[in-house]
């Protein structure tokens, strides 16, 4: 598939601090690429460098097959960006805000009107067209922020943590909107530190820490990296120390802990882990309230790769 964006050996320093450290990756046409990383890992800095908003020490950025430069207006016209911070005019209502930012790209009035309508529909702001930013809730404001960035129907869209501090309803709306953008043919780069979003949304994920790529691939590929394959949680009123020790000796068990009435077991590869546990608990006559098994998340992958949690 066609490469839309390629980043080669990007290095960006603030004074002596390397915020982006020799980053390289490609983005293919029509995919949603997730940039996942904890706070301060260099996601926004990377995007700003790609967009020529920041000068960088070294590296090469190619978009649509051409080198990106501050005055590459031909490239810029097909790029849409939604920054982490909300950037709208507080003096303008929803429609006028979108109209302004769209107008920076599209001169034709009729076509622009259609674009604005589409954008409003996409983010679900139909009932708030005449509202001023001050009158919008945090979630709605984020949606407006997105509409302003993508109204001109860009082919390549950057979304920098568009769901930070957003209520679940707006979040779902935003995620749906992003999928729709992709379905309409856009290529999307999505940064976040919510791994749940990445798992729902992204075709491919790059995990960044301290400005370096520490892993990349599809969600499943990444989970392969982790030594854990299954997590089992059992709610038990009381548990004998001896039984816990015995569980730890089970086949495939990586770790087992018992705290505050919760028995938590992680398994390495292997089959029938849950059923053999249930059988065992029956045998030793331990009563439990609930028992459930989970697949590992990207957080576990991150924890495994860096030894720290993705979010603190």
């Amino acid at each position: 598939m066609k490469t839309i964006l390629s980043v080669e050996n990007l290095i960006k320093k603030y004074k002596n601090f390397k915020a982006v450290d020799d980053l390289s990756f490609d983005v293919k046409k029509g995919e949603i690429l997730g940039l996942l990383g904890p706070n301060g890992s260099g996601k926004s800095t990377t995007i700003n460098c790609i967009l020529s908003l920041l000068k960088f020490e070294s590296g090469k950025i190619t978009i649509f097959g051409c080198e990106m430069r501050p005055d590459a207006y031909d490239i810029k016209k097909d790029i849409g960006v939604v920054f982490q911070e909300v950037a709208v005019f507080e003096e303008l209502n929803v429609i006028d805000n979108i109209d302004y930012f769209c107008g920076l790209y599209i001169k034709d009035k009729e076509y622009r009107k259609k674009c604005i309508d589409d954008a409003i529909k996409l983010v679900g702001l139909e009932d708030f067209k005449k509202f001023y930013p001050k009158q919008l809730s945090g979630g709605l404001l984020r949606r407006l922020n997105i509409a302003c960035g993508i109204a001109h129907k860009p082919k390549l869209v950057f979304l920098d943590e568009p769901t930070v501090a957003v209520d679940p309803q707006s979040r779902n709306n935003i995620l749906d909107g992003i999928k729709k953008l992709r379905d309409n043919g856009a290529t999307i780069i999505y940064t976040t530190h919510y791994m749940e979003e990445v798992e729902i949304l992204c075709d491919r994920v790059i995990i960044i820490d301290k400005g370096k790529i520490i892993a990349s691939g599809t969600g499943d590929e990444l989970k392969e990296l982790s030594k854990i394959e299954e997590k089992v949680t059992v709610e038990i009123d009381s548990l004998d120390e001896k039984i816990l020790e015995e569980i730890k000796q089970f086949k495939n068990v990586d770790e087992a802990t018992y705290n505050n009435g919760i028995l938590f077991i992680t398994y390495k590869k292997g089959k029938n882990n849950l059923s053999s546990l249930i059988d065992y608990l029956k045998k030793v006559d331990v009563h439990y309230d609930k028992i459930y098994s989970e697949r590992p998340t990207l957080n576990d992958v991150f924890l495994y790769l860096t030894g720290k949690e993705l979010r603190d």
């Binding site: 967009l51 020529s52 908003l53 207006y73 920054f83 930012f101 920076l104």
Partner: peptide
Amino acid sequence: KRTIISSM
């Protein structure tokens, strides 16, 4: 920032 990255 939005203005700078736009095609204007």
